[in-house]
Amino acid sequence: MSDECIRLEFKVDSENFASAGSASEAVKTQLKLLGINSHDVRRVAIAMYEGEINMVIHAKGGTAVVEIYQNRVDITLADRGPGIADIDLAMKEGYSTAPDNIRELGFGAGMGLPNMKKNTDEMRIVSNPGVGTTIYMKVNLT
């Protein structure tokens, strides 16, 4: 029974900056219905939202797959963007490759990946320059 999960799949659209966050919003709604502790809901929502924004800024969108298990949430964010050349550097707070026009909107402060790391229990990045990036995240539920 504990292997049973609720699987949700989203296409993260890059067309509209304002619509970024719709996948995290949908997941948040589902977690609330399950009565998940609000602190855990917040962690999942923030990690996903940052991931969605990253896909919109850097990769013209991608896909998000969320699996809700009894005791954890697995999130897989995959894109076919430019990839991350130096993952360690990208994980540094304040490091950003976002273009100026994005920064003017208040994004691209170099906090996305660190925030995702901070709000998850496990995070793994697989990236190939020119091919794309896949980020696996796990949030344990209390």
Partner: peptide, 14 residues
């Protein structure tokens, strides 16, 4: 708004 106090049952309902 909580579907069920038991998380497994809530997941089934969801």
């Amino acid at each position: 708004f909580k579907l069920d106090d038991d998380r497994v049952k809530a997941m089934t309902k969801l």
